[in-house]
Amino acid sequence: MTTFAESLKKEIARVARKELREEISALRKTSVVQRSEIASLKKQLKAVQAQVNRLSKEKGEKARSAPLNEPYSSSAQLKGKPGRKVLFTAERLKLQRARLGFTQEQMAKLLEVSSLSIWKWETGGAQPRASRVPQILKRLALGKREAQDQINT
């Protein structure tokens, strides 16, 4: 009986290897296709970066300092390094709210907006008006005690 059990185990292992071999070959083919796509995307990215560098050299220093893909930046310099613009981002808002330990309602009260606005800003569904961004950034830069005092007043 042990020979039957052993031969059954061997047959099961053989069939499993055969099935795995087919699946692995399919995965290898997919991997090769994806690697070639990645290589072509890297080439495209390199070409675009070269084009951006060339255009920025043509336009001068202004084109190099302008941020790409940012909707706007604050015109007010908030105790930062000279020439460095502070931007409003959803991640910054989330981090500041977590740092202060505030709920969305408390953050809304601090920034004088609705809690729905805070939720939309954090999820990236909306952006605050450009005219309000400097005021929002100033309030986000407050310390925990200062922010709590502003909420309580």
Rank of each mutant, 00 (worst) to 15 (best):
A50Y: 08
K62T: 06
K62P: 00
V48W: 14
E112G: 01
F88P: 02
A16C: 12
A108Q: 02
L20H: 08
L78K: 06
A141G: 06
S74H: 01
Q150Y: 15
R14F: 14
Q96M: 04
L137V: 02
A66W: 10
R64A: 11
T89S: 09
I136L: 09
F102D: 01
P128Y: 10
S36V: 11
Y72L: 06
N53P: 00
Q104M: 06
Q51A: 09
K62D: 02
K42D: 07
S25A: 09
V33I: 12
S114L: 06
L27A: 11
L41Q: 08
V48H: 11
I24H: 07
E122C: 03
G125H: 15
D149H: 13
F102R: 02
G83I: 07
I24S: 00
E19A: 11
L110A: 04
Q49W: 14
I151S: 01
A39Q: 08
S31E: 09
R35P: 00
R129C: 05
N69Q: 12
L140Q: 04
K18P: 00
Q104S: 03
E70K: 01
Q135A: 08
R84Q: 05
T30R: 11
K29D: 12
L20I: 06
R92E: 02
W121K: 03
Q127I: 10
L111K: 03
V48A: 07
T123C: 02
M107W: 08
Q34Y: 12
A141H: 13
K85T: 04
L55S: 04
Q51F: 15
N69P: 05
